[in-house]
């Protein structure tokens, strides 16, 4: 059963993404409201993929990506950024610090599901 960590400060977006993830068989969504909360969830649960916003209080998404990539226990977890920042430089920056994919909001659910299926490790099924 793949565990997907949704890091997003907006409850509306968290619910929307959780809804979309229900289409991925057997997946389980774990929600975090910011980067710090996400780090706690990473320590307590086995996470197979992270869906992460950029603009969040306490700790933003880019800082979280850097910390995840520098931690040997989490460094291989695929990370998909889901953000309102649609500029090319924002995309390049996120990918350069270790994000695997970048999906600007408003999200197209099919595209989100396709990306998650692409990056979800086979062993997580």
């Amino acid at each position: 059963m793949p565990n997907i960590l949704v890091v997003e400060d907006s409850p509306t977006m968290r619910q929307l993404i959780s809804f979309a993830m229900k289409r991925i068989s057997n997946s389980r969504v774990i929600e975090a409201t910011d980067g710090v909360d996400a780090l706690k969830k990473l320590s307590s649960d086995k996470i197979d993929l992270i869906l992460c916003d950029i603009n969040m209080p306490v700790m933003d998404g880019l800082k979280l990506v850097s910390l995840v990539r520098s931690n040997p226990s989490f460094k291989d977890i695929p990370i998909i950024m889901v953000t309102t920042e649609g500029a090319e430089e924002d995309r390049k920056r996120a990918l350069s610090i270790g994000a695997n994919a970048y999906l600007p909001k408003p999200i197209q659910t099919q595209e989100l599901i396709r990306l998650v299926n692409t990056y979800l490790p086979d062993s997580a099924d």
Partner: peptide, 28 residues
């Protein structure tokens, strides 16, 4: 989700925050 969130609270400022979230995240 939009409808659920809008009616999830009776707090005026929270409802406004949800409207703002919907307009940003769902409408763009």
């Amino acid at each position: 989700v939009a409808s659920y969130q809008l009616h999830s609270t009776l707090d005026f400022s929270e409802v406004l925050r949800i409207v703002v979230e919907i307009v940003i995240n769902l409408i763009g």
